[in-house]
Design a protein around this nucleic acid. Structure first.
Lengths: 187, 187
DNA sequence: TATCACTTCGGACAAATGTCCTTTTTTGGT
DNA sequence: ACCAAAAAAGGACATTTGTCCGAAGTGATA
C-alpha cells in the first residue's frame, strides 16, 4: 500500500547529506503537483523525506492505474537513471511532499563509488520487485472483497487519506464497484 | 511474456565462465521439475542458458498466479540472495531447461568486486521492475480481449507452446473465460 | 484394443463488475 | 455564510466472468 524505506532514508540523512551538501538538495511539492511525468526524460533521482505520492500510469484508453503509494524513504527515478530510458509512470504528490533530489549522473557515480549505497539500492530494487509481484498475484487471485479487506487491514485510515477514485485506480476497478463492496463490508 | 536478457547471458558466457570455472556450474532440469520452491531458502542464483520456465506463486486459496515466463538469459534467485529472505515464488521448468548456477555467497562477492557484473544486475532488476509494472497496469486497465490479442501479437506461437491453464493463470482468469474469448477472436 | 488419467471444450446458470445516470454531500474560495 | 465545483453515493440495467458441470479428445500402457 504505502511503501516506505527507513534504512535508505537513514543512510541518506546520516551519511550522504554531510558529504554531498551541494549535490543532494531538498525540494518541496504541494498537493497535486507532478514530480515526474510519464514518457519524459528524468534527470534526477528522488527520495521522499515526508508526505505521500502516488505512482501511476495512464493507459492508452485513458484509464489510470496506480502502481503504489510512496511514503518516507521510498525512492523513484532510479530505474530511469540506471537504464537511461524515459519514465514509464507519473509521480504525483498527494499531500505536501518533501524530497531529497540527486542528479542522475551523481547517483550513478555513487553507485560505483559507495558500496554501501550500492547495496541499499540493490535492496530497494529487490524490495520493490517483491512487493509488486506479491501484491499483483494477490489481487489477481482474490475477490475484490478480499482485496479491500486486506487493504483496510494493512492501512486502516486508508479511506480518510486517499480519494475513492485513487483507491479504485489502485485496485483496477471503478469507483462504483468500490462503493458497492464497501457497503457490504462496513455495516 | 517470455522474458529474456541477452546482455547478461553474454557476459556470463564470455567473461565470467572463464574466470570462475569451478564456481559457476551448468545444470539441467527436465520438463515439470521445480528449480526453486516457494517459501524455501534459496542458496543459488540461476541464469537460464536454454529452455523456458514459469515463475508463479500459489496463493492461500489454492490459485496459482504466473508472474512471468523466463527464457534465455533471465535470472532468478537473485532477489533472495540480495535480501536474504526465502523465495516468494516457484520456478518450474516448462520444457528441457539448462541453467548456470552461482552460489549465493559468490554472487554477492561478484556484486562487490565486479563493477560490470554489478551494473548488469542493476539493469536486470530495473528491467524486471519496469516490465512487471507495465504489464500489470495494462492487464488491469484493459479488457480480457485486449490482453489476449496483445499477448498473441507479442508471441504468436503462445497457444502451441504453453498450456491453456498456464495462459489463464498468467492472465489471472479461468480457462473457461480464456476459451470464451478465444472463440470470439479466432474465427 | 481397452482402459485410465489428463486435458480441453462448451452449455447453462449465478455472481461480479461496468456503464450511465441523477442526486446528495463535501470542499474551497470569496 | 454562500455559491460553484468537485467528490461521493447509489439505482437500473448491460456485460463480463466465474462456477459447475458432463462430453469429447489425447496419449501412455497393459
Amino acid at each position: 500500500m504505502i511503501r516506505k524505506n527507513a534504512d535508505l532514508l537513514q543512510y541518506i540523512t546520516e551519511k550522504l547529506l554531510k558529504e554531498s551538501e551541494d549535490t543532494i538538495i531538498a525540494q518541496s511539492f504541494s498537493s497535486g503537483k507532478k514530480i515526474v511525468d510519464q514518457k519524459k526524460r528524468v534527470f534526477s533521482v528522488y527520495i521522499i523525506k515526508s508526505g505521500i505520492t502516488k505512482c501511476y500510469l495512464t493507459e492508452d484508453n485513458g484509464v489510470d492505474f496506480i502502481q503504489e503509494f510512496f511514503g518516507e524513504g521510498e525512492i523513484f527515478g532510479e530505474l530511469e537513471a540506471i537504464n537511461g530510458e524515459v519514465s514509464f509512470c507519473c509521480i504525483e504528490a498527494i499531500n505536501a511532499v518533501e524530497v531529497y533530489k540527486i542528479e542522475a549522473s551523481y547517483f550513478n557515480q555513487l553507485l560505483e563509488k559507495d558500496i554501501t549505497f550500492n547495496k541499499h539500492i540493490l535492496k530497494a530494487l529487490s524490495k520493490k520487485l517483491t512487493y509488486t509481484a506479491v501484491r499483483h498475484a494477490y489481487n489477481q487471485s482474490h475477490t475484490l472483497e478480499d482485496n479491500l479487506l486486506r487493504l483496510i487491514h494493512q492501512f486502516p485510515t486508508l479511506i480518510d487519506e486517499i480519494s475513492k477514485q485513487d483507491i479504485a485506480n489502485y485496485l483496477g476497478i471503478t469507483p462504483r464497484s468500490l462503493n458497492r463492496v464497501l457497503s457490504t463490508i462496513k455495516p
